[in-house]
């Protein structure tokens, strides 16, 4: 990646495979956003790998003309980790869904985040199981009526950003499938971050959970319902920027009218804060995608990257002991000679 890549176009990044998501699925716009962004990132196809698990989103690698592994349910972060730490020269992307990443693969997700492996994780959150035809997911709202929960789901949903922050994510962001520009900006930031970047994408499953995010991402609602996070800026939203967020003395956040409190009293966003409390508080601001919801980069901090640290241990060991000598190793437990 150090040398300059030959300029590419979206076409170069598009594989010959027919895309087979349901017509109207939000996955299409995410795919387009990524395919169009890649030429801008100035990276090489041969150095790019997409790894996925199981679910609708997991078909993604087949449509990218890069290296790709479509593996088994939930395990993409683990497989991508092994690849990224042994090949630090590669750009490794993980494409996953709410069931894949937060249910069956929850353990791998949190440990990838904790280790801070150099991965870019795109979590397509549609709050439903699409591939298996419509069971509730770990991000579905409580009381969700589905085929597997005819009387309503009982469990409390995860907020993916809260989970990621709780797992020591060094980069956590949210975007949505209705805004290509915003997606690309967030993906660009995620790609530039060294370590594990976690991006939640609100994605509409128009077949099994249509309109799940409509109340916040719908064209007519966005201005009033999405709270754009910008580093160093007071947090405000609304068509005129008339609403804002303040932090109370007990550390809790509250939505206000800017006119009531004055701009100088609004909470100023800080992506780089060492402790994750502010980012976490922001992730708790909305109780679901029906209240004003922050989008953008919640957190972006520098932390040692796992693969690099592992590589450094090898370099240091070689400095101390020289490159390994097999004969020496076999004799290291003490020897005796016969004859």
């Amino acid at each position: 990646m150090t040398d300059v890549a030959v300029p590419t176009t979206r076409k170069d990044w598009t594989s010959d495979q027919e895309v087979r998501w349901c017509p109207g699925c939000g996955d299409y716009s995410i795919l387009a956003a990524v395919q169009m962004l890649m030429p801008e990132l100035g990276v090489r196809r041969e150095n790019t790998v997409f790894v996925s698990g199981i679910g609708c989103a997991a078909r993604f690698p087949y449509y990218m003309n890069t290296y790709g592994v479509h593996c088994i349910h939930g395990r993409a972060p683990a497989i991508a980790t092994g690849l990224a730490v042994s090949r630090p020269d590669l750009d490794v992307w993980v494409v996953t869904g709410d069931g894949d990443a937060l249910s069956i693969g929850g353990n791998h997700l949190i440990h990838a985040l904790r280790r801070n492996v150099n991965l870019t994780i795109l979590l397509f959150n549609n709050q439903i199981y699409g591939l298996t035809k419509g069971q509730y997911s770990p991000t579905s709202e409580q009381g969700k009526v589905t085929k597997s929960t005819p009387f309503g789901s009982l469990d409390t949903p995860f907020d993916p950003i809260s989970v990621a922050l709780g797992a020591e994510a060094s980069f956590a962001a949210r975007t949505h499938d209705m805004d290509r520009k915003h997606m690309q900006e967030v993906f660009r930031r995620a790609h530039a971050h060294r370590g594990t970047s976690f991006v939640e994408i609100y994605q509409n499953c128009n077949v099994f959970n249509d309109g799940a995010f409509e109340q916040v991402t719908g064209r007519d609602h966005r201005a009033e319902m999405l709270i754009p996070l910008e580093h160093g800026q007071p947090i405000r939203f609304g068509a005129e920027g008339q609403h804002g967020v303040v932090m109370d003395s007990d550390g809790s956040l509250r939505l206000v009218e800017v006119a009531d409190v004055g701009e100088e009293n609004l909470l100023v966003h800080d992506e780089h804060r060492a402790e994750p409390a502010l980012a976490f508080a922001l992730s708790r601001l909305a109780r679901g995608p029906h209240e004003p919801t922050p989008i953008g980069v919640f957190r972006d901090v520098d932390r040692p990257e796992y693969g690099e640290a592992m590589g450094r241990q090898i370099v240091e060991a070689r400095q101390r002991r020289g490159s390994g000598d097999l004969a020496e190793l076999l004799a290291s437990g003490g020897t005796w000679t016969v004859g």
Partner: peptide
């Protein structure tokens, strides 16, 4: 034996252990 260029990863579970090994194998 890191000076042999060996990378070892204590994984979060058995599945991640083999998963990471598969990922590394894909990478050569």
């Amino acid at each position: 034996q890191k000076h042999f260029g060996v990378r070892t990863m204590q994984a979060e579970d058995e599945i991640a252990g083999i998963g990471a090994a598969i990922g590394a194998a894909f990478g050569g």
